[in-house]
Design a protein around this nucleic acid. Sequence first.
DNA 1: ATCTCATACCTAAGATTCTTAGGCAATATG
DNA 2: CATATTGCCTAAGAATCTTAGGTATGAGAT
Lengths: 110, 110
Amino acid sequence: MQKNQLYKGSLSTIVLKLLNDKGKMYGYQITREVEQITTGELVITEGALYPTLHKLEAKGLLSVEIKTVNNRPRKYYFLTENGKEETLNLLNEMKSFIQNMDVLLNPKLA
Amino acid sequence: MQKNQLYKGSLSTIVLKLLNDKGKMYGYQITREVEQITTGELVITEGALYPTLHKLEAKGLLSVEIKTVNNRPRKYYFLTENGKEETLNLLNEMKSFIQNMDVLLNPKLA
DNA sequence: ATCTCATACCTAAGATTCTTAGGCAATATG
DNA sequence: CATATTGCCTAAGAATCTTAGGTATGAGAT
């Protein structure tokens, strides 16, 4: 997603949370949205995104709806029920991760 | 480091920051320390730690000092000058990562 | 008319990081 | 004497991402 290795592992969480909030989105739109929200700091490459979308669909967390717009097909993804549950799990894991990073990297001087 | 993929990429940051604060530590001690600080939530496996220590040493960020204690050798690692600089860089990257996760995952409802 | 850019999808080889599953050795404990 | 703890290590494989392509439509510029 950039030179920073920390983002590795966070892509599914980001995608699911976006879909949770926006209802449905297509791949290209997700890359634009993330870039805009982070003011260009996080750029999701398509080589990372599309395999991730396919994986989440294969796991039953996403469903697809194809719409043709401007004579080009768009694949709109949206959360299944399992996807909504998993989104909550992943958000909790992210909270836990950030808390653990906080105690590790910002220790209270005993 | 556990089932949670989010920790992927954070190990070097954790190790460098610990050494920055404690001065010098040996591998086994690092695993105990992290487990204790996070109350068992984060367990660093030795299969991840030792290759990382060797990589950081090869990059010139760490130096080693071998001491024999209880008739067993310990390899104490400590930061080089480059290691101190890189620690600051990685801590800044972690801050940036957490900020970007915040805007992505906790959006202010426009 | 052709060139380039933005849109919109995709895959595959390789890099990086970690897990899993071992191996070796000394000391302490039951 | 068997097991747990300490303390080091490696190697095969999994998971995630980067890099570097490919395909195609439509709009705007030269």
